[in-house]
C-alpha cells in the first residue's frame, strides 16, 4: 500500500486514532468519559501505510556525455580544443533566435549548407528539441518555438567542415533569453556580465520581420536595435575585430503581407544603412541578411537565406587576421648612428 487509505467502520463507532479501541468495545484513548466528546471520535480511521522499501538500485550504468546545451565552462573547454567561432544571437523575445540555430541544424539533416558539411555536435538532444515543434512529429500544423528560459547563457554546438578544407571548425551559438538582452538598454553595464558577447566572433542582431509590418511596432524595433548596439559599445563588450550581422527574420510573414512587404523591406534597408553609418568603424564588418529559418506559412521555403548567413558565421575570425604594423622611425641618440649608410648616401647623391 503506497497511499493513505481511509477506513470506515461499519459499526459506526469509529475513531481517527489508530491506537484507540473504542470501535472494538474498549475505552476512549483520549480519556473522554463520553466518547462522542472526543474530537477524533466518529471520524474515519486513517491508516498510515508502512514505508515501502525503496526499489533496489539497478546496476550502475556507464554515463555518456549529456548531449544538452553547454554551460559556459563546458563551452570554454571546447574553445580550448581547436578552431571555434562563437556566435551571439541577440534579439528580443520571439524574434527567432532559437529558430535560427534549429533551422540551420535541420538544413544540415538534408545535406551540406552553404559549402559547410556537418562533422558532429555535442548538443544533439537540445538541437533536436529545438527542431521538434517545426517537425511533423510534433502534431502541429504551424511551426512553433519554445521560449528560451531566463538564466545563464547556454550554447548549441555544431562542428562543421568547409568545402575543400580538411579541418573541423566548431560553431558555438550563445542562447540567452531575449528579455535579458532587452534589459541592457536600461542598464548598459549589465552587458559586462554576459560573457558570450565579448568573445563573439559574430554578433548577430535579429530584427523581427513580422513587427516591421506594423507601423506602431517598426519604430520600436529600430530603436531597440540601435539602443542595444549602443549599450554594447558603451559597455565595452564589442571588440573591434567583431563582425556584426543584422538579420531580418520571418521572411514568410513579410511576403504574406503583399501590401506591407515592400515597405517592411525598405525599412529594414534604411535600418541597416543607419547602423552602418553609426558603427562601420566599431565593427570589423557589418552585413545584413534576410532569412526564413522556420517559416509558419508557405510564403518562404525553410532555410531561405541561411546558407549565406552560415558562411558569414563561419568565416575566418577577424581577430585572427594579421594587422599591418606601421614602421616607426626611431631617431638614433648618438651622432654616429644618425650618419647615413655608405650605400644609401651614394644612391642619394
Amino acid at each position: 500500500m503506497t497511499a493513505m487509505e481511509e477506513v470506515d467502520e461499519d459499526s459506526g463507532l469509529s475513531c481517527a486514532n489508530p491506537g484507540c479501541k473504542i470501535a472494538s468495545g474498549g475505552r476512549c484513548l483520549e480519556g473522554f468519559p463520553d466518547a462522542s466528546a472526543c474530537p477524533q471520535f466518529g471520524k474515519a480511521l486513517v491508516i498510515v501505510p508502512g514505508t515501502t522499501p525503496p526499489p533496489r538500485p539497478a546496476a550502475p550504468g556507464i554515463r555518456l556525455s549529456h548531449a544538452q546545451s553547454l554551460s559556459i565552462s563546458e563551452a570554454t573547454s571546447l574553445l580550448r580544443g581547436g578552431l571555434c567561432n562563437v556566435i551571439s544571437l541577440v534579439g528580443p523575445f520571439d524574434s527567432g533566435k532559437t529558430s535560427l540555430v534549429a533551422g540551420m541544424y535541420d538544413l544540415l539533416q538534408r545535406g551540406p549548407v552553404g559549402g559547410y558539411s556537418f562533422a558532429g555536435s555535442s548538443t544533439m538532444h537540445s538541437l533536436e528539441r529545438a527542431c521538434h515543434d517545426s517537425r511533423r512529429e510534433s502534431g502541429r500544423t504551424e511551426a512553433f518555438t519554445e521560449r528560451t528560459e531566463r538564466g545563464e547563457v547556454l550554447f548549441f554546438h555544431v562542428d562543421l567542415v568547409s568545402e575543400g578544407c580538411d579541418g573541423k571548425r566548431a560553431a558555438l551559438f550563445g542562447n540567452r533569453a531575449g528579455e535579458e538582452y532587452s534589459m541592457v538598454q536600461d542598464e548598459p553595464d549589465r552587458a559586462k556580465a554576459y560573457p558570450e558577447l565579448k568573445r563573439s566572433d559574430v554578433l548577430t542582431v535579429l530584427v523581427d520581420g513580422a513587427k516591421l509590418l506594423h507601423a506602431g511596432e517598426r519604430h520600436q524595433v529600430r530603436a531597440e536595435v540601435r539602443l542595444t548596439l549602443r549599450a554594447f559599445v558603451e559597455a565595452g563588450v564589442a571588440p573591434p575585430w567583431q563582425r556584426l550581422a543584422i538579420v531580418l527574420t520571418k521572411l514568410d510573414a513579410i511576403r504574406k503581407d503583399e501590401a506591407g512587404c515592400a515597405g517592411a523591406l525598405s525599412y529594414f534597408d534604411a535600418l541597416v544603412a543607419k547602423v552602418r553609418e553609426d558603427y562601420a568603424s566599431t565593427f570589423a564588418e557589418v552585413q545584413s541578411f534576410i532569412v526564413a529559418a522556420s517559416p509558419k506559412t508557405t510564403n518562404a521555403h525553410r532555410g531561405e537565406g541561411m546558407p549565406e548567413l552560415l558562411r558569414y558565421w563561419m568565416a575566418d575570425p577577424a581577430r585572427n587576421a594579421p594587422a599591418a604594423i606601421k614602421q616607426r622611425e626611431v631617431t638614433k641618440e648618438r651622432a654616429f648612428g644618425r650618419l647615413p649608410l655608405v650605400a644609401t648616401a651614394r644612391a642619394g647623391s
Partner: peptide, 14 residues
C-alpha cells in the same frame, strides 16, 4: 525515419 517538416506538409496540402 527522416525529419519531416511541417512547412513542407503545408506546401503539399496547399
Amino acid at each position: 525515419k527522416a525529419p519531416g517538416w511541417i512547412v513542407e506538409d503545408a506546401e503539399d496540402a496547399e
